[in-house]
Design a binder for these strands. Structure first.
Lengths: 340, 340
DNA sequence: CTGAAAGCGCTTACAG
DNA sequence: CTGAAAGCGCTTACAG
């Protein structure tokens, strides 16, 4: 094939200088309207597209964002948390809307990616998504800050104020889930999910959960909290532990839908019916939730909005505008697993 | 912050020329080992990363692939077919393994993306994924070919041999699903999914389905085929139509899991039990499948392998090596929806 | 083994 | 409103 057209080819055909072509294509008002139109026509004819590498090199920005999905290495290789997949969708859309491209990468928490994307001018900023162990994260984030990398992270608020984090209001989510269970007349609540600072999102859900119980004047016991990571298996195992613990309970609030689905399986195996014997509420509203048996009541995070805010905030950060972290409110989706 | 380090900064500190730095960083054996090591050290110290825009501009390639997900505009904005999401995961991984970056974009079939990525030198090649109407596609693909764009598409074989397509063997998939139903003693089969050339993947599944029935010497009737697109709603509607059609049937083979799940819902509403009254088999093995009620028997596509082959094929194409389309075999995952 | 130099294709002050 | 020119940060023939 003929090699790709350049702005010089266009200049030649239009009988103007290359600078004028460049201006015209960027719709500079400096260029005579007629000339501009003619140049646009020729560009279309030649199927010309501005070379991104050249223009980025010149302007020193890339109009590209990088999305790093940090997977928990404990997870199966082929399984990405469906919640993140949904976020990925909304981020892709939001990025495109702003006229940026999106570079996507899955990273093990262990790998050495800090700032790689921005340093090599591949991206103007980075969005970090991940449910990994929070504390392992810390040092990497520090390094990113040190390098003045532009980044936003999805999740709980950060101890370090310099880190811009956007997340759903997990405390509020834990509250509305638990309040709903209380309204259903439940009295003894188990919580499945890590409640330590290793996973602040789960911890905050637990905090909201506890708060709702106390506000209702019901007895709260830490003994009914069982750690789990966000997989069906882990939820299954945690529920087994709960069952053998001898703790009595009539409701489970799981820190994620996958945990909740594992819990339902464990309950069923034990001959317990959901919701008649035990009400179950999950978190995330992943696609599977509505197809679970029974359909899962769950706390929905507005991924559409979250993606938009994440992208907008990052762009503001890049442009040097004022930005602050945001908490996005959650809502409860009531299905069969919690109400008879 | 200090502005980003360049190869000149390194050259200055190392007391060599910038060309030598460039060579050393690319590990050229031309450069003295000692010098090379020193340069690498300094680079690390300065947190230097080769500027991608500059090097890409110079070498005229981008070490980037673009993934275009073409969504059916009929779909809800926020819902991406879970099968594609799984493909996205495997493609991301395969791309990274080959040392390439991945640009991801969701496109409406209607938008004017042809070759945009490659023309602007943002990517060396394009992977197309999508369940859209096949025929609408045609003209775009022709254009891509005309522009000598490097691309692979996921899906059925193409009429136009010049188009490199990688896909699972849909005929074989349709066969193993149906053979399984026959083994279960079923005799009258309904097929849910479009069987026209608008959607060759579904059509091929239908072909395999029909073939298996004929091979078993069982009666085959086109009247038991009902069109559906890959959504739960469409599966629900198609099953309603099937039910009012008066056709008798004891098994349903759905062209996708989402269709199958919709079918099960429609059957249940009608008071029919799965699998006792009607056996159901789906296609894709999306995450939801194992959580369906009953768990869905389905044809599994090896997305891991598919992603790898897609990426490898595209890279070969880019490098000008010999490539040809491939059919990836499928396997059957037997669950409760088809066997009692 | 190393350096000086050209050039990838743009954008944008500067001069007119 | 337009053009000539510099320069973004690399890679790589060319010459030594």
């Amino acid at each position: 094939m003929a090699s790709k057209a350049t702005s010089i080819d266009i200049a030649y055909r239009a009988g103007v200088s290359q600078s004028t072509v460049s201006r015209a294509l960027r719709n500079s008002p400096l260029v005579n309207l007629e000339t501009r139109q003619k140049i646009h026509e020729i560009a279309k004819e030649l199927n010309y597209k501005v070379d991104k590498n050249a223009s980025n090199l010149r302007t020193q920005n890339s109009l590209t964002l990088a999305l790093l999905l940090c997977e928990d290495p404990t997870n199966d290789d082929s399984l990405i948390n469906p919640f993140f997949l949904s976020m990925l969708g909304s981020i892709t859309r939001a990025t495109a809307q702003q006229g940026y491209d999106l570079l996507v990468s899955f990273q093990q928490l262990s790998s050495d990616w800090h700032g790689d994307y921005e340093d090599s001018n591949k991206a103007d900023g980075i969005i970090l998504l991940g449910y990994g162990d929070y504390l392992d994260y810390e040092s990497k984030l520090e390094k990113l800050l040190l390098q003045n990398t532009h980044f936003v992270i999805w999740g709980a608020e950060h101890n370090n104020n310099a880190v811009l984090s956007i997340g759903c209001d997990n405390v509020q989510g834990g509250m509305i889930a638990t309040e709903h269970l209380i309204e259903q007349g439940r009295k003894e609540f188990a919580f499945l999910g890590g409640a330590s600072s290793h996973c602040p999102e789960f911890r905050d859900r637990y905090l909201g959960h506890s708060k709702a119980i106390k506000q209702a004047g019901l007895p709260h016991s830490k003994k009914r909290q069982f750690s789990a990571i966000s997989t069906e298996e882990s939820g299954f195992d945690a529920t087994k532990q709960l069952l053998v613990s001898g703790q009595s309970f009539d409701a489970i609030f799981a820190a994620s839908d996958l945990i909740a689905i594992g819990a339902i399986r464990a309950l069923n195996e034990r001959g317990l019916r959901v919701p008649e014997d035990i009400a179950v509420v999950g978190y995330d509203d992943i696609p599977v939730a509505s197809f679970a048996n029974p359909p899962l009541t769950t706390v929905k995070q507005n991924t559409q909005l979250a993606g938009e805010i994440l992208v907008e905030s990052l762009l503001k950060l890049i442009k040097g505008e004022e930005v602050s972290g945001q908490l996005i409110p959650t809502s409860l989706v009531i299905r069969g697993s919690s109400s008879i």
